[in-house]
Design a binder for these strands. Structure first.
Lengths: 114, 114
DNA sequence: CCTGTATATAGCCAATCAGGTATATACCCA
DNA sequence: TGGGTATATACCTGATTGGCTATATACAGG
């Protein structure tokens, strides 16, 4: 599994996204992260492991706590990937991309349905 | 499964990301999309269904072909979510963000770039 | 109508996932 | 040393995933 796979897979779960959102505010222990969720502590630990394996968090040591901290760099890579589509979702999709890439314009310039 | 879940889950697979990348160049049939992959046609159809359910592609009808076209709007939503983390991965992380909470990013006044 | 082509569906399988409970480990403090 | 707290690990389960093959459907053209 490459980095992008791991990043997007980690982000596909709302609990994990909420954990990351919480970590914007700074480090937090597992207990603190678990508190908002109706979910067992081991399940949260599992989510944290997914995030850690994806490189989205790192963990420290503070007595028996293992505080989690956000590592946002992989998100930058995901963002870069998405940026390729920006001109399309912003509606500025001109055939520029097609012209610059491998041009296969077999379709009429006006696509009918949708 | 909400929209963001579906979007990120769809993006977590490299075959599906490659399909989306191909569709930047314009519509393509299932056969055309399948061609670069060492994978059966039904498997590609399954991937397309995932993308369609996530709202990332839509399909037309052209005789027996079901051409796929990119629908990038859900990617904008994913991008918005990621943008909340930009200042962190860019190293400008100041506590200010935490205090302001996770606000929906209002576009900066310059908004020039594109 | 028959055939070929494009695509979808059904059913199978192994792997992974997301949750749970029970238990182990690690560390602090009295 | 022993108890309490924080976290991780092991194991179970049902659902989902991603691939396959075989088959069904939809359509075009002779």
């Amino acid at each position: 599994m490459n980095q992008l796979d791991a990043t997007f897979a980690a982000l596909a779960d709302p609990t994990r996204r909420a954990i990351l959102a919480r970590l914007i505010q700074g480090e937090a222990s597992v207990m603190e992260l678990a508190e908002p969720f109706a979910m067992s502590q081991p399940s949260i630990s599992k989510h944290l492991k997914v995030l850690e394996n994806a490189g989205l968090i790192s963990r420290g040591r503070d007595a028996q706590r293992r505080p989690c901290r956000l590592e946002a760099k992989p998100l930058a890579e995901a963002n870069d990937w998405l940026e390729r589509y920006r001109r399309i979702w912003e509606g500025n999709f001109q055939r520029l991309d097609a012209l610059l890439g491998a041009m296969k314009a077999e379709k009429a310039p006006d696509s009918t349905d949708q």
